[in-house]
Design a protein around this nucleic acid. Structure first.
Length: 287
DNA sequence: CATTTCACCTGGTGGC
DNA sequence: TGCCACCAGGTGAAAT
């Protein structure tokens, strides 16, 4: 489901609704859980924490947590140092994951794997039919702070961008999808940015010129920023934290437009497979 | 090490 | 209506 613009949209929406709230009850499903940290340990760590903020790192959603969760020992939670971040809940949505803020009496969707009841009465729910998503709890006092791999496509400078691909023999499309190089780019925005930069997906990453790479960096940044403004791409079932669809799918130039005319030159959009992923491009506009 | 392939899942779609 | 093949926005382990 989600690439950088969708994850950014969701993180902003969740942040707006749960920032400052407190987790008062935690429920995890048990059926082959998509969890990095065992559900029991996550539930213990999340209980009675304050949600300080929610933001995006690459395709990950990081929930910053404060407060002492000593409710289990019967003591009242400490209120003084609430805003100091002591832990993180890291959510990766995989292909079909959703992070939803609901009212407590909203019907529980099939494939709901986690429910966090909040002091405000709302619930934060993780739903993921395909179970490619991951949930992870990190205790900062144990030095487990989350650091996403890869550079941020919205912030990377020209020289660093060039350096990422130097000497690499893999296809530029495959390189864009590699999260340890750039974090957050997936299949849609790889295809769309390569179209806008006029570069064929199968070109070897290390053979691109400095000028081409700068065109690509700017195309990627523009496409991602534009998509964020439109709330992401709703290709099948993607929705934001409120269940609202995005609109960038209406602006796709090549992605899932196989056989249709190129919006720029009119020639037919082709579909090939690169790095095991379907890849869409215009053979006339991309060289 | 760099790169490629494939398994992991459920669900939707379109052909017959 | 049903059955089946194929496709799907992501990763990371295993193979090359």
């Amino acid at each position: 489901m989600p690439e950088l613009p969708e994850v950014e949209t969701i993180a902003r929406g969740v942040d707006a609704r749960v920032r400052g709230d407190r987790i008062v009850d935690v429920w995890f499903g048990t059926h082959r859980e998509p969890f990095k940290t065992p559900a029991v340990r996550q539930a213990e760590g999340l209980h009675e924490r304050k949600i300080v903020s929610v933001h995006r790192v690459g395709k990950h959603i990081v929930v910053e947590l404060g407060g002492e969760n000593d409710a289990r020992s019967g003591k009242k939670p400490a209120r003084t140092q609430d805003s100091a971040i002591v832990a993180q809940w890291v959510v990766h949505l995989g292909m079909t994951g959703r992070l939803l803020v609901t009212s407590p009496d909203a019907p529980v969707a099939k494939h709901t794997h986690a429910r966090l009841r909040l002091a405000s009465g709302r619930e934060l729910r993780f739903v993921d039919p395909r179970r490619f998503g991951r949930l992870d709890f990190r205790d900062l006092r144990k030095g487990q702070a989350f650091a996403g791999p890869g550079a941020e496509p919205l912030a990377i400078e020209p020289a660093e961008f060039v350096q990422l691909f130097r000497g690499r023999k893999l296809a530029i499309k495959a390189a864009l999808l590699n999260q340890t190089l750039l974090a957050g780019v997936g299949n849609i925005y790889a295809d769309e940015s390569l179209f806008r930069a006029g570069i064929r997906p199968r070109r070897k990453a290390g053979r691109l010129t400095r000028v081409e790479l700068e065109k690509l960096r700017l195309a990627l940044r523009d496409v991602l920023e534009h998509a964020i403004r439109l709330g992401g791409s709703s290709v099948s079932d993607y929705v934001d934290a409120e269940g609202v669809r995005g609109f960038f799918q209406l602006e796709h130039c090549v992605y899932q437009r196989t056989g249709e005319p190129c919006l720029r030159c009119g020639s037919t959009i082709k579909r090939i497979v690169v790095a095991g992923r379907s890849t869409h491009y215009c053979a006339h506009c991309q060289r």
